[in-house]
């Protein structure tokens, strides 16, 4: 177990493994997303209240889930890097930030476009929407802080600290619809008991969730290779890696 953990801390190993995984993850993502979009947009029955507008769920929910997943991953990687002084942790956090930020922006934009026909407005200062917007600001803050220092190591540490402090926002986003009065609907899939969605609507949603998760993994692996190369360009193993 610890041997595996320490191997994961080795940049050459991570560089090699990320390169091997990335194309397969991207292939799996493409297949799942293709199935999810076709089934969700063309074959899933329309919602009896929302009509076809409900089909936005197939892009909105995966984006929202991945925005939280990305931030949690970034905070965990930052925490590992700070506690065990494993520099690959900082590289993972740096690689996850832009991907997570883009999914957060996607969740906000698709949520706004869904909100207009359902609530009559593109934006409301609702607890779920506001906390998701704060998440986007946190992502931007972490990315900005990382490049704000002349010494990259200090930037990495400051960004990891902000990521760890900001992770408190993740449960706030998830439970906001239960803690406060909200325009936003409650949990549909991630809740105790049976999901409150019909199977014919659920399967494409699960495919989209799996596809977006695989996509996140593929992009993370590709970005991670770049981050490792940028941070390790003076290391001896780089020579064989870049000339291979």
């Amino acid at each position: 177990m610890w041997t595996w953990f320490y191997r994961l801390a080795s940049p050459p190993y991570v560089y090699r493994i990320a390169g091997a995984f990335a194309p397969w993850l991207l292939l799996g993502a493409a297949l799942c997303i293709l199935y999810g979009l076709i089934d969700g947009l063309a074959f899933a029955p329309r919602d009896y209240q929302q009509g076809d507008a409900f089909r936005i769920i197939y892009v909105h929910v995966p984006a929202a889930v991945l925005s939280l997943f990305g931030y949690t991953l970034m905070a965990i990687a930052g925490g590992i890097a700070l506690i065990w002084r494993i520099k690959v942790g900082h590289a993972v956090a740096a690689a996850a930030a832009p991907v997570g930020a883009s999914f957060t922006l996607l969740a906000l934009v698709t949520g706004s476009l869904w909100g207009k026909p359902m609530w009559g407005t593109y934006w409301a200062w609702d607890p779920r929407l506001t906390s998701e917007l704060i998440l986007l600001f946190l992502y931007v803050g972490v990315m900005s802080l990382r490049v704000a220092f002349e010494d990259p190591a200090r930037g990495d540490r400051a960004a990891a600290l902000l990521a760890i402090v900001g992770v408190v926002n993740v449960p706030i986003i998830h439970y906001s619809v239960q803690w406060w009065n909200s325009l936003h609907q409650g949990a549909t899939i991630l809740k105790l008991g049976k999901p409150s969605i019909a199977g014919s609507m659920l399967w494409p949603l699960l495919a989209m969730l799996a596809g977006c998760l695989l996509f996140f993994g593929a992009v993370l692996c590709t970005r991670l290779r770049g981050e490792v190369l940028l941070r390790e360009r003076q290391a001896s193993w780089i020579r064989s890696a870049v000339t291979a």
Binding site: T222, R223, R225, G226, E227, V228, L229, L230, E232, R233, I238, A241, V242, T243
Partner: peptide
């Protein structure tokens, strides 16, 4: 990003 990093490393 990966292409830029490869160029810098080379």
């Amino acid at each position: 990003l990966q292409a830029r990093a490869l160029t810098q490393a080379r």
